[in-house]
Structure formats: structure tokens, C-alpha cells
Design a protein around this nucleic acid. Sequence first.
DNA 1: CCAAAAGTGTTAGGAGTACACCCATGG
DNA 2: CCATGGGTGTACTCCTAACACTTTTGG
Lengths: 211, 211
Amino acid sequence: MKIHAMQVTVDLVILTIQEQQLRVLLVKRGVPPFAGEYALPGGFVREDESLEEAAARELEEETGTKDIFLEQLYSFGDPRRDPRGRVITIAYYALISPDRARLAAGTDAAGAAWYPVSGVPKLAFDHQDILDVALGRLRGKLEYTTVGFELLPKKFTLSDLQQMYEVILNKSLDKRNFRRKVQALEILRPLKEWQRTGRKPARLYSFVPRN
Amino acid sequence: MKIHAMQVTVDLVILTIQEQQLRVLLVKRGVPPFAGEYALPGGFVREDESLEEAAARELEEETGTKDIFLEQLYSFGDPRRDPRGRVITIAYYALISPDRARLAAGTDAAGAAWYPVSGVPKLAFDHQDILDVALGRLRGKLEYTTVGFELLPKKFTLSDLQQMYEVILNKSLDKRNFRRKVQALEILRPLKEWQRTGRKPARLYSFVPRN
DNA sequence: CCAAAAGTGTTAGGAGTACACCCATGG
DNA sequence: CCATGGGTGTACTCCTAACACTTTTGG
């Protein structure tokens, strides 16, 4: 019986918020195929590691950070998605807060940088599809989970929180309704600290998961 | 550079409703590993087919039917999930209505049969995990989509519809509230036909997707 | 004193939930 | 005539959405 061996990779959609924009980490490819074009970071799954471990390893290689939100997204396996041969990829997405969104030393040389998701350059392979799925998933989960807090620093103002939702959902929200709704969730701990950068000082909050 | 080649399979969670129970199609394994135990149907992805095509092919091989709901579920890649070696699997789930849930000729010999999801026998590999993910996905999607209709024949009564929801969610629903809610969705076309099996004849409806 | 962002309540409409009885038919 | 499942309405609560002004500070 013929053994159907294939190459298996993980690709990562690493998202953060910078300058009021949702941004994705892209690397500039140095070698063919698609040399000079942009791509999602990723790499081969090793013999002795799970898919999740491979994704976490790649994530740490790119960002130097381990303990950030990481979730499997979808698997892509069109026979012609990689011109070099049959490669199937398990895509993951990660969320990282702006205060931790530094790039690992050396990745800068590889051309890794944060690009606004609205207006990414043309992507290699089927990576635009992968990005689209990631954005859809994030928008969906934002509505019924608290994943969004992964994109905020530990201390944040209610305006920060609202802006995060507005940036991801790409629509503006009513300030009063928004505040009433999140307060009702009982997941915000008001701190005795105020952010004094703007005009009127804004109260800082921290996120306390329910249960 | 070392090439990390792995074997890639698709596994299928094929669900239907029979005798007021949600049931899953299982095959009895004839060869090691796990010979004699039950497993989800599945098989290797061929060189020239996409993951979706592989899943659809396996589905047709088992059920003889092509045009049924099929959606990618999750990928499983623990290095030790298959004792024969490194095999990663892309799991799909399919929904088939009871009037089409016949098994393909010859599959009966392979021991394929429908088992109630509450009370499946012990499953080979990590197939219990896969089944659990499928049930969670189905329950989630039931709340905000119309996938449930994939489990009903073309013509059904409102009681059939409600029973389908109750069986999947494993809780009873209020008849009046349920009917008001589904009628408000404007996805039901009342037919000029009645099911005369019970005592009082029940009106039949068909599903008309919105938009 | 002015510009900028923080903060705060009320009302109206829609959705969800709880709840009980009559109807049509087959046996 | 009776057992069985089919079919229907109302009241209350809660969530959502629309909407505008005052407060605090820095410059």
C-alpha cells in the first residue's frame, strides 16, 4: 500500500493593536517561492511535537513570548497551495497586547513587522485566505467571549476597551451603552489609579475572568 | 535540510437523528491497532485531492451520498495519537437527514452502524475527543445558524423540528415559545399537507433559507 | 477660558421566559 | 369517550438602542 506522506506546517496569524489599528505580523520572504513577498510566519511541524507545540514554538521564535493567547484556526490543504509540492498547513491565531508586542531579536533582519490588517500587502501562498478566516473568527469570538482582553495591557481605561472593540469590529459603538454592558458583565475591577495622559484623568481597570 | 513528512488522514463525524436520538456512524476496526474496537470512519488524503475532497470522498464511500452538509471541524496531531507512527488528522463533521441515512452497500460488512452519541462504545485513537468537539460545535452552531435543518427530511412537522433541537441540546423546550421563535425567523414554508400518523394531524413545513 | 476626552440616565421597543387550556383524531 | 399529541396568547422581565449634557484637566 502506498504511503501518502505530506509535509505539514503551522502558520500563524499573530494580531495586536498598535496606533488604534489591528495589526498582523508579517515576514518578508527571502527565498523562492514568492521571494520578496510577504507571508505569515510559520514552519514545519517536527516529528516529536504536537501541532499546538509547533505553533507555540514558532510564536516564541517570532515574538520571544510564550504565554499569550493561541488557538487553532483552520487547516488548509489545497494540493496546489504551495508550488514546491504537497504541503498542508494548520493555521493558528494568536493575540498579543501592545505592551508585549515586541519582536524577537533577529526577526527584524528577517523583515518581520506589524502591518495594519486593512491594507496588508499582497500575501504569498493562500495566506490572505488564512488572514481572512482569522479576522472572521476574532470578530465572532469577540461577541460572545472575552478574548478581546488579550489585546489589552493589564491596566486599561474604558475608552481603551471600547476602542479595541471598535477597531476589530470596524464600527463605532455608543459610549454609554457600551459601558453599561461591560460593567454588567462583572469582569472589570476598577483600580485606584488614573491614566493622566489625556485631559480629564481616566480610571484604569483590570480584567478579572468570571468564575 | 530534513524533510518532515507525515501521514495525513481525514476522520468523519457523521451524525443523524434516528429514533429520537442523535447518532454517529462508527465502524468496527478489523485490523490492528485497536482491532475489534470502534472508530470514526476516515482514511488517507490522496496526493491530488484537497482536504475537503478527501472528506467528501470518504463520506460518499460510507453513505453513498454526496450532497450533504460537511464542514471542517478541527485538526488533531498529537505525536502519539496513532501507535503506528506520526499521523495527523483533519476531522470533519457531516449531518445527514434520517430519510437519507442509509449505509453504502458493503459497509455493513465492515461493521458500520449508527450509535447513539450518548453511550457510544469505547472508541479507538483519540476519536472520543473528536466526537466531543463535533458535538460542541453542533450545539454551538444550532443556536445561531440553521444547520439543524440538515438533520430533518424535506417535509417535517414543528414537533419534529422541536424534537431535533431538544435531542441535540439535551434539554426540553417550551412548545409555545419555540414555535413563536422559529416562525419569527421566516424560514418555514407551511405546506398544504398534513402528517396523519399521530392523533390530530400535524401540519408539514419545508425549510426555506433566508436571503 | 477653551479644547478634549471622561463620565453619566432615561425611555421605548424587542426578545426571552413562564405558564394552561382547547382541539382533532384514532381506537 | 378517552387518550394522545397538535395547536394557541398573555404578562413580565430583561436586553438593546437611541440620544445630550456636565466634568475635569492641560495648555
